[in-house]
Each structure stands twice: as C-alpha cells, then as structure tokens.
Amino acid sequence: MNENHYRVAGMTCGHCVASVAEEVAEVPSVHDVTVDLPEGTVLVRGRDLDDALIRTAIAEAGYTVTEPVAV
C-alpha cells in the first residue's frame, strides 16, 4: 500500500475536513483518507495512487495543495 501526503490551505473546520475526505475517497484506488485539520495535512493510502487525481479532488472540494509533505 502506498501513502501520499499533502499540505492543504484553507481548511478551517470540520465541514472542510469532511469535504476533502469525501472528494478524495472517491478517487479510484484510494483506500483511506486522513485529514489533520490542525496541521493542515491530508494523508491518502491506497494502491497505485494517482497524484493528479488526488490534487484535482482536493481542488474540487474547494481547497489548494500548497506543497508536498516530506515524510
């Protein structure tokens, strides 16, 4: 299983977390999404993850990936 980490700007509340998690969960091959509101990060787990599709899903939720997160 692969993991992709993202720093996301603009998330301020539980609704933001739910919106991002819901959109990203719909991306093919995504098995799990963890959104950390205080840190402003999103952790995506799955097989053969498509970075572009995940970034698009975050944008569709109304937020911006500001930079990748080093792990």
Rank of each mutant, 00 (worst) to 15 (best):
A21D: 06
H5Q: 14
Y6S: 04
R55T: 03
E60T: 07
G10S: 03
A9F: 08
M11I: 08
A9D: 14
G40Q: 10
S19T: 05
R47D: 15
A9S: 14
L43N: 07
P28I: 05
E23G: 01
I58P: 00
N2Q: 15
A18Q: 10
V69W: 13
A18K: 07
A21P: 03
E60Y: 04
Y6T: 06
V24Q: 08
T64E: 15
G40A: 06
C13F: 06
L53Y: 00
C13W: 05
P38F: 10
I58N: 04
G14V: 07
C13L: 11
A9C: 01
T64G: 06
L37W: 07
V69D: 10
L53G: 11
T64C: 00
H5M: 10
V20K: 05
C16R: 08
V30K: 07
R45T: 11
P68W: 10
E22Q: 10
E26K: 15
V17Y: 02
C13A: 07
T41V: 05
T34A: 13
A52W: 00
G14K: 13
L49F: 08
E26W: 01
R47T: 14
D51S: 12
D36S: 14
C16Y: 10
D48G: 12
V42L: 11
M1Y: 11
V71F: 13
A18Y: 05
V71H: 13
E60M: 08
V8W: 06
D51G: 10
G40F: 08
V33L: 05
R7K: 13
D36T: 04
N2H: 02
L37N: 06
R7I: 12
S19W: 05
T41Y: 04
S29A: 14
V65E: 04
M11P: 05
E23H: 15
V30D: 02
D32N: 14
V33H: 04
V20Q: 01
D32C: 04
T66D: 13
S29N: 15
A59C: 00
G40K: 09
T64K: 12
T34Y: 03
D50I: 05
R45G: 10
E3G: 03
G10K: 07
M11W: 04
L43W: 01
V42D: 02
E60V: 00
E67A: 15
A61D: 07
E3S: 14
T56R: 14
P68R: 15
T41H: 04
A18T: 03
V20P: 00
E22I: 01
N4W: 12
V35L: 01
N4R: 15
V33I: 03
E39H: 08
D32F: 08
